[in-house]
């Protein structure tokens, strides 16, 4: 009986490994898709919130990102980290969403958004992850995008310049200002201001 069920392919799959989940998603099996969603949705929601700056847009990015992911999963070559590949899809989806909302246009025009710079920023560890994420999400658009891409996703300035259609110099400048902006907010928060 066991052999018969296995032969007919109707045995319920466990999807215990990443490989099984990916194969199930390629075959458009709903349980595999659900499993993949459960594994990656929390991290990708955080990523989407960091890029979008607000929760509603982050939900849209999460929705569109997973649809793209399930439609394109057969193009994953298996080379490199699968999570890195997934992150790339969500970053692209977020950038596309921001472009549609005309947010990227403002990335060159926010150089004056930095307030006073502190020489002694408060330690990051004193903040909870949620508080830190909310601070990043509240950064001005250009700072937020460049900082997320460089400091967290690991893009270099050349890649950022290409993705955001800005110059490399502008990317460096915005990253520097974004760091100072964030450090200052962390310091203020730690001091209870």
């Amino acid at each position: 009986m066991h052999l018969l069920i296995t032969a007919m392919g109707i045995r319920k799959r466990e999807y215990s490994t990443q490989q099984e989940i990916i194969e199930g998603c390629i075959k458009r099996e709903p349980p595999a898709q659900r499993k993949l969603y459960e594994v990656y949705a929390p991290k990708m929601l955080t990523l989407a919130t960091r890029y979008a700056g607000d929760r509603e847009r982050a939900k849209d990015i999460l929705h569109d990102g997973f649809i793209t992911l399930f439609n394109k999963i057969d193009s994953y070559s298996g080379i490199g980290s699968f999570e890195g590949w997934v992150r790339r899809i969500f970053v692209n989806t977020a950038l596309m969403s921001l472009r549609k909302a005309d947010v990227l246009r403002n990335t060159e025009e926010i150089n004056n958004a930095v307030g006073e710079i502190s020489d002694n920023p408060g330690p990051v560890e004193m903040m909870s992850s949620k508080e830190l994420m909310e601070l990043i999400a509240s950064m001005p658009d250009g700072f937020r995008l460049v900082f997320n891409m460089y400091a967290i996703e690991g893009y270099n300035h050349q890649e950022i310049a290409k993705e955001l259609n800005i110059s490399e110099g502008s990317s460096r400048s915005q990253l520097s200002r974004a760091r100072m902006w964030l450090q200052e907010r962390i310091r203020r928060q730690n001091e209870g201001e």
Binding site: A41, P42, L62, S129, L132, M133
Partner: peptide, 27 residues
């Protein structure tokens, strides 16, 4: 500074709204 922020963010995840999967499933 970047490394510490990255580490904090990588370890953090939020559970999305339960209705979201339903919307993805329908699409």
């Amino acid at each position: 500074f970047d490394k510490r922020v990255r580490e904090q963010m990588e370890s953090y995840g939020e559970i999305p709204d339960s209705l979201l999967w339903g919307s993805i499933e329908r699409t």
